[in-house]
């Protein structure tokens, strides 16, 4: 399991230098504005904004493409499915298959929105260390319990992923082949999953003991993250301002245009 979400977080670019708390607010507002866009005339604006942000971030294109691979199946399904079944206005007729205008327009809308939102969120989470993003969320008022849970589970994700890989290797070497569904196969997988839970649980007890020994939970401030008030520089304010204005513009245009 390779997470490597923040593997390009040390590049020097205007987006990387944008302070993460204000970036989080601004880009999230943009993501929601994108989600609201349905008018075809606004799609080019959306694409332009997304491309600009992506270029400014200096993230490699291959990174974006590798991230699109998994949801690519979904896009493909939409493209293949919708033009044939949705709508009444036929624009192409091949006997049983007819391509319909409404379906095509729906495809354009959905795919554009999808790719734009995905790109912006990749820039948002790919241009700062993930820990910093979690800190920003705490500064913005996310509950301490959720922040602590996020930190700890993030910390152990890869470790547990490797644990699972090793256990799967071990049962494979002893001849386990799960090519068909049988009671025994399901039971083996259940035991394997159960073992993963038991091991995680036992590790969590050790983690907790190590944490209380260092003061966790002893008072109300005993949480995992210390956050100081951040200073937001002028350029970050500027970027955030522009982004929020674009978001508001998109919303207003969607409603009143």
């Amino acid at each position: 399991m390779k997470l490597a979400l923040d593997k390009y977080c040390n590049i020097n670019s205007p987006i990387h230098n944008w302070e993460q708390t204000s970036k989080l607010v601004a880009l999230l507002s943009l993501i929601f504005a994108f989600a609201f866009v349905t008018k075809l005339t606004l799609l080019p604006v959306m694409i332009l904004v997304t491309v600009t942000i992506f270029i400014l971030s200096k993230l490699p294109l291959s990174f974006l493409i590798s991230r699109l691979r998994y949801p690519g199946f979904f896009i493909l399904a939409v493209i293949i499915f919708l033009p044939f079944v949705a709508g009444k206005t036929v624009i192409l007729d091949w006997g049983i298959f007819t391509i319909k205008q409404e379906g095509c327009l729906a495809v354009i809308r959905i795919v554009t929105r999808f790719i734009c939102i995905l790109t912006v969120s990749l820039v948002l989470f790919g241009t700062a260390p993930f820990l910093k993003t979690i800190k920003s969320m705490k500064l913005l008022g996310l509950s301490a319990i959720i922040v602590d849970m996020m930190l700890l589970s993030y910390r152990y994700l890869e470790e547990l992923g490797e644990m699972l890989t090793r256990m799967q290797r071990a049962i494979k070497l002893r001849g386990f082949q799960s090519h068909n569904l049988s009671k025994r196969n399901l039971e083996v997988i259940a035991d394997l999953t159960g073992t993963l839970f038991v091991r995680s649980y036992e590790q969590s007890q050790r983690v907790y003991q190590a944490m209380i020994l260092r003061g966790y939970g002893s008072n109300n401030n005993g949480h995992l993250l210390t956050t100081k008030n951040v200073k937001i520089d002028k350029i970050s304010w500027l970027f955030s301002g522009i982004t929020v204005i674009i978001s508001v513009f998109l919303l207003l245009a969607e409603i009143y245009l």
Partner: peptide
């Protein structure tokens, strides 16, 4: 806070 480490590690285990 006592149960947070348990809940977190099990969250990670469910995810995995």
């Amino acid at each position: 806070q006592e149960k947070i480490p348990k809940a977190s590690l099990l969250t990670a285990a469910f995810f995995v």
